[in-house]
């Protein structure tokens, strides 16, 4: 099983707007990658490029040992759950499964039934009248039922009520344990996935501006309360994010110990307090890091 994903200098433009700018990343087989980024940063675009639904304007891509070539063969190996699942409105959910069964070589009808039962999904329901939750479950089943080597999940819990979300998440968790699949999941609430993912890719300004091993986040991310002697704080080069600035003191988050140490020892800084940051909080704060990185990118671009 070859579940690796490699991206090298991938570029994608829509008109004059460069959505992905030289995206480079690598996911080893069996890894679970969390893809973090603001709306419109290109997460779905990246997924579609990996799925051979969109062509990259430049760069090299390898997924499951295959390169996208327009044939669609890649999709035999990849399970995809889109942010907004679509099915043919004139079908029932069961018929939609049957349709997929005719195209995906490894489609497992029994597995699909089992998943439907587990997720309490009525497959006889027509697609046209199905709720968002039902469609979400159906999309999950479609992503899993053909036993793909790689899973791409684009906001799998987006728009779902808590009960359905828990059900979907639970299924994801079950899928992860011991499966050896490579999974890339984009989720605004990465904290929901905290215990599951191995690595986080932060996508900002069209690039992957940071990658964090979750285990390292868990052990090294910390909160700093600092005071600047002359009112100035270091801006670039450190993986720190300002949390608040209240008078003489400011609050920062650092995502690794090296950044925390360098920040503490930076000129004019007096670190008063340092305490570990919970993983959930770290994951929440990664978006801020993404914003900061994006701003730097923009300034550098204009300069």
């Amino acid at each position: 099983m070859n579940g690796s994903i490699q991206l090298e200098g991938v570029v994608r433009r829509f008109g004059k707007r460069e959505v992905l700018r030289a995206v480079t990343a690598r996911a080893e087989p069996g890894k679970v990658i969390g893809l973090l980024g603001r709306n419109g940063e290109g997460k779905s675009t990246l997924f579609k490029i990996l799925l051979d639904m969109l062509a990259a304007d430049a760069g090299r891509i390898s997924i499951g040992g295959m390169s996208p070539d327009g044939s669609g063969r890649i999709r035999q190996k990849v399970g995809y759950m889109p942010e907004r699942p679509e099915f043919h409105g004139f079908m029932t959910i069961e018929e939609a499964f049957a349709l997929r069964g005719r195209f995906f070589e490894k489609w497992d009808r029994r597995r699909a039934s089992e998943l439907a039962k587990r997720l309490e999904l009525d497959v006889r329901a027509p697609v046209a009248g199905a709720s968002k939750g039902m469609l979400g479950k159906a999309a999950m089943i479609c992503a899993l039922a053909h036993n793909p080597e790689i899973l791409l999940l684009d906001e799998p819990t987006s728009g779902l009520d808590p009960i359905v979300r828990d059900g979907v998440l639970g299924e994801i968790i079950r899928e992860l344990h011991g499966s050896g699949k490579t999974i890339v999941v984009s989720n605004h609430r990465m904290e929901e996935m905290g215990g599951l993912i191995d690595e986080v890719w932060v996508l900002a300004g069209g690039r992957i501006v940071a990658t964090h091993e979750v285990e390292r986040l868990r052990t090294e991310a910390c909160r700093l309360v600092a005071r600047a002697k002359n009112g100035a704080y270091p801006a670039t080069g450190l993986r720190v994010v300002e949390l608040s600035n209240d008078g003489p003191l400011s609050e920062w988050a650092a995502f690794d110990s090296d950044s925390a140490d360098r920040f503490s020892k930076a000129w004019g800084i007096e670190a008063i307090e340092r305490e570990p940051l919970p993983l959930e909080t770290s994951l929440k704060l990664l978006l801020k890091e993404a914003d900061a990185a994006a701003s730097e990118e923009t300034e550098a671009h204009h300069a």
């Binding site: 999709r75 679509e86 195209f103």
Partner: peptide, 16 residues
């Protein structure tokens, strides 16, 4: 166009 395109582009068949 969507929604049919979205419903079918996931199928492992080339656009051609």
């Amino acid at each position: 166009n969507d929604p049919l395109r979205s419903a079918e582009e996931i199928l492992p068949v080339s656009d051609g």
